[in-house]
Each structure stands twice: as C-alpha cells, then as structure tokens.
Design a protein around this nucleic acid. Sequence first.
DNA 1: TAAACGTGGGG
DNA 2: TCCCCAAGTTT
Length: 354
Amino acid sequence: MRDTDPSGDLPLILLEWYDVHARAMPWRTPPADRAAGVRPDPYRIWLSEVMLQQTTVATVRDYFQRFTARWPTVVDLAAAADADVMGEWAGLGYYARARNLLKCARAVVAEHDGQFPADHAALLQLPGIGPYTAAAVSSIAFDLPFTVLDGNVERVMARLYDIHTPLPAAKPDLMTRAEVLTPAIRPGDYAQAVMDLGATICTPKSPACGICPWRDPCLARRNGTAAELPKKTPKKPKPIRHGTVYLGQRADGAWLLETRPDKGLLGGMLGWPGTDWINADTPRPTGTPPASADWQPLAGEVRHTFTHFHLMLTVIHAPLPAEADPKRGHFVAPDNFRPSDLPTVMRKAYDLLR
DNA sequence: TAAACGTGGGG
DNA sequence: TCCCCAAGTTT
C-alpha cells in the first residue's frame, strides 16, 4: 500500500529516521531534548544558519564556537566593534554576511527589544535574512510550520519526484513539493531531517539509496536517475585577473593595512593596499605604492580563486621609514596584528612574505 | 533573471 | 590540477 500511495506517511517516516540518526551539532537541540520541552536559543539558530549559508558544517563549527564564546547573546554581538566582528569572520567568506550579521543584531536590539521575533514576516525584514533563513529560524527556533528550501531540499525533492527541469528554473516547483510534505507537527525537526538526509544519504554524488528511509517512494531511484539529479544550468568559465599588493612594515614592526570599503569584494575586511584586479592574460605593470619606499617584488605569486574569477597576485614589500605618511591605509602595531583577521587571499600574501 | 559574492574539501 | 560542491542573499 505504502509503495503505491506513500504520500501520507512520508514526513513521519523521515521524522522517525531523524530521531535515530540526527547529527550532533553545537547549535542543535537533539530530538529527544526537544521532545522533553527544551527550546533552542533563537540567537544561536540564527547565527548558525547565517554561517551555514553556502558553507559546510565542518567549517562552521569552530567559527560558531568562537562567536558564541565571545558574544553569548545577540545584545553582546550588537554592541561589538565592527572590526572585531569582521576579524572574527575572516576566512569564512561571503563577507556581506558578517556586515549584515551586525546590522541584523543591532536591528533586533533597536526594533525588537533584543529578542528575535517569532514571526516569519518580521524575520524576513531583517538584514541578511532571506527566504531560507527566515524559514529555518521560524521552524527550527520557534517550531512554526515553514518550509526550508536549501540545496539539500532541492536535491531531495528533485529525486523524490524525478524532476528533470534544471535549477534554478525548477525552484518554484521544488518549493511547492517541499511545502506539501511539511508536517504541522515538529516542523523544526522535519526541516533539519530533510537537510540531514540530503547531507548524509541523498548526497550529490553516489547517493546511498540502499539505506535511505525514502527509498521506496523515491521516483528517481525507481527510474535509475537519482545520480544525475538535480539538473543544473551550465556554469560560465572564470576569467583570470591580475593585481598587486604592497606589504609595508615600519622599523617598529607596524604594518600598513587598510580597511576595505563596505561594498564589493571583501567589503569591510582588513587588507593590504594594492591595485585594482584587472582581467588580463599577463601581469600588468605595477600601480602606485601607498608610500615612498624601496619596494621589491617577492619571488613567486599568490594564486587564489574567487566565486567568479581566478586571481594572480604579485606581492611587493618594503621597509617603511618611521616618518612615512601613507596616502592610503593605516598602521597596525604588531601587538594588534593577527594574520587570522585577514581574508584568506590577503593572508596568502602575508604567508608568501613570511 | 543574472551576476556578484569566499573558501576549503573531496573526487 | 581542476572542477564541483556547501544549511543563500542582495542588487
């Protein structure tokens, strides 16, 4: 019976699987605790969800621990200095998330009395909270019946219903299917269960269909198409860009750094002064250094790949005179300089000099 | 709608 | 080495 008309039992089957197989995570309230009445902390759910955007669980763990140790509540985070939050986020990527994280924390304090609203529409109005995160916080933190649609859920739905429309065009259809399945009971556990299923069983390559709790109703498994779903529109090739950064250090050890403008690539992050990064097949002549000094290029170069281009970075360094008055940037005393405050591409330039 | 926006790990 | 991928949002 369930083979031919399984729709009514699908959510229940997955929740039973989740009760046994839920992965432990620092921000997660296990299903047993949740059943005993333990409520998740909306601050920690929100923080983890923002960190998890386009980022693996393994990468997020350490950042989450450091953030919650340093800023235990949203009120603490709202009071933090911008540079401290950006420095703590360094290396996680997609730095607009960190800028919006602070804006959101301050909005929660200013507009919601320091408490995240248990209201999907209100959450959606906050900076950095889009359709996914609003649904995730609503369901996981407040157990409201909203449906998350992330990469995992898209993949699971595409396979469960054998949908061959390529992403992102298929999203509305996948969302409708996901919404129909979302149960009125335990929507928070259910949301995490579908994502866990996608992360551990219904994986992008070689899915473990044999041990999947939804193996019987899954149409793609029945049709042998699971491994090729979801279809995606082809990606555009990445061009190569070239640029130069200037690593200047005074005799007292202070480094010449700049805080990048809030908009654009690495916005709001600490970095080395340098040239624009220009599309080219070969390196460009170096630009104008931030201060007069005996600049010398380093052997080798920094290679780094961003979302939409490859970068070849020439690194130039110089000792700076004590009276140097740079046109750009500011000096950071060695006691205040943490290489870990730099975004990865800038840290690579520092590592090349070391 | 499409492009911009990071990084590290796995195959 | 290279390509794909990860619990997306903003413009």
